Simulated scan of single mutants.
Amino acid sequence: MGDARFHWFADTMTLGRADRVLEIGPGASPSLSLLADRVPEGRVIGVERSATAITRAAERLRAAGLDPSVHGAPPGESTRARSSRTGGTEPREGEASHGDPGRVGLVHAELTGLRPEQVLDDFGIDAFDKILAVNVNLFWTKRPTAELALIRRLLAQGGVLYLCYGYGDPDGAAASPKPPPGRLGEHLAQAGFTERTVASGDLLCVIGELD
Rank of each mutant, 00 (worst) to 15 (best):
R143M: 04
L148S: 12
A4Y: 00
L106C: 11
A4N: 03
A109L: 02
T12K: 09
D3V: 05
L204N: 03
S83L: 04
G208Y: 01
R17W: 01
F128L: 07
R43V: 01
E90V: 08
D129P: 10
P91N: 09
G158E: 09
D67H: 11
G76I: 08
L32S: 01
T141G: 01
A10I: 13
E48Q: 13
G88N: 13
K142N: 07
S84R: 15
P144S: 12
R49V: 13
R82W: 15
A175W: 02
H187M: 00
I54N: 01
A175I: 06
L203T: 06
R152G: 15
V21G: 10
Y162G: 06
A133W: 09
G113H: 10
A96L: 15
P74M: 05
L203G: 04
L188T: 00
G102N: 14
N137M: 09
Y162L: 12
S84E: 15
A10F: 04
N137F: 05
G166Y: 09
A96Y: 02
G185L: 00
L154S: 09
P179L: 03
V70L: 14
R60I: 09
G102A: 14
D100I: 00
A28V: 04
Y162C: 02
L210H: 08
D122I: 07
D202C: 01
E209Y: 06
E48W: 15
E93G: 06
A189L: 04
D19F: 02
R115Q: 11
S69Y: 05
A4F: 02
D211Y: 00
S50K: 06
N137V: 11
K130P: 03
